[in-house]
Design a protein around this nucleic acid. Sequence first.
DNA 1: GCAAAAGTGTTGAAGGTACACCCATGT
DNA 2: ACATGGGTGTACCTTCAACACTTTTGC
Lengths: 231, 231
Amino acid sequence: MVSGHTYRYPRPALTVDVALFGWAGDALQVLLVQRDKAPFDGSWALPGGFVQVDEDLEAAALRELNEKTHVHDVFLEQLYTFGAPGRDPRDRVVSVAYFALVRPASHPPRADAYTRDAGWFDVADLPELAFDHGEILRVARDRLRGKVRWAPIGFELLPPAFTLGQLQRLYEAILGRPLDKRNFRKKLLSLGLLTDLHRHESGVPHRPSRLYAFDRDRYDAMSADGLVFEL
Amino acid sequence: MVSGHTYRYPRPALTVDVALFGWAGDALQVLLVQRDKAPFDGSWALPGGFVQVDEDLEAAALRELNEKTHVHDVFLEQLYTFGAPGRDPRDRVVSVAYFALVRPASHPPRADAYTRDAGWFDVADLPELAFDHGEILRVARDRLRGKVRWAPIGFELLPPAFTLGQLQRLYEAILGRPLDKRNFRKKLLSLGLLTDLHRHESGVPHRPSRLYAFDRDRYDAMSADGLVFEL
DNA sequence: GCAAAAGTGTTGAAGGTACACCCATGT
DNA sequence: ACATGGGTGTACCTTCAACACTTTTGC
């Protein structure tokens, strides 16, 4: 795979950037890294970097994520490609943005050689971001908001065993509006995609809640038969 | 905007490819070009080409489209970015695919220096396509099928004045299933987005149909108020 | 007058929304 | 005992799906 005579023109550079969302129990968060180089030295940005010449795009996104967090399990999908000529002040850089979700447990961010620091930020209270990463994040939030009603991706943000209350708070945060408790529970249970674990929370200062798990096998079987999730 | 010391690594090449759909009155069509160079010399492919180093991605897509058709009015949006390492046998090429719709009238395709021929093909009866363009087209058709129910993009394929019968046949072709005539008309008229032009077809061997126009201003106003189109 | 598509309402089923009280636990 | 979230059912209304006949034109 050598560049032949066909491609003799100057090429834009190609990067991936990842909008990684997490759920802190009461607020939606995003992972940001603090840049340690010009341009935007000191600014916060989405984790990302250059795509290697023989590397798959999704693999590049996962690699970048791995360099910034200890990821166990991520849901990752392509979001959009940002390529406005002025988006990087130095050079023409086209970025394929990815959208990712992680479960809360133990994803301590760490800085790498190119970043001064890394950390989780509430989406409701973000610093100014480098490049067009504010715009990328807006698109990612729109995608999350739109998609969570059609696909069972909310579960990617919760631990394997969760309560209906946790699930409802998550949906309310993503959708930005309150949901009726009885209707929410009725709807979700009627889908038949939650397994009752017959266990309860403990140590809470109120009636302990039942714990449920999302039944992915059943979802896969049902969606093969043409079901839609639709909350 | 000169490549500095920061970007010293080999870069993937970057192209755009466009899945342009048209409506022939009874069948959905796609514009294809016949390649006149290796690889895939003689194969049919989506129109597309290299992104210039200071060119916006969407501008590149429009330029490529212009070089292959006489486009008056296109609906164009980004579809997905395809970047599997082996998708071009010669070199690493990442392609940002676009999805486009045109009204039928007078878009005669023409070949250019890189193409032997260009023409419209029924989506139901396509040749084998070059590269991964068959896959791109599948994704584009999925997008069209999914989006036509949520956004008023079907009108982009019809002339400014159309009949409800034409509109229904278009929806049936895109969705791939028959729709109930009375329910379809009821639903569309109840949205309040069709202007009755108080004109009728003529020269047809049956009762002439009323002509309607899509009221885009009204749609914009309504969607600013948070309406969803939802057919 | 015949062929072909246009045009038009009603009914039953399903799903969505609104709404208020008792329960189990920790402190 | 009190504070806190967990858990439950009904009634109304809106929306969707199914369904058949008359009208207007060209030939």
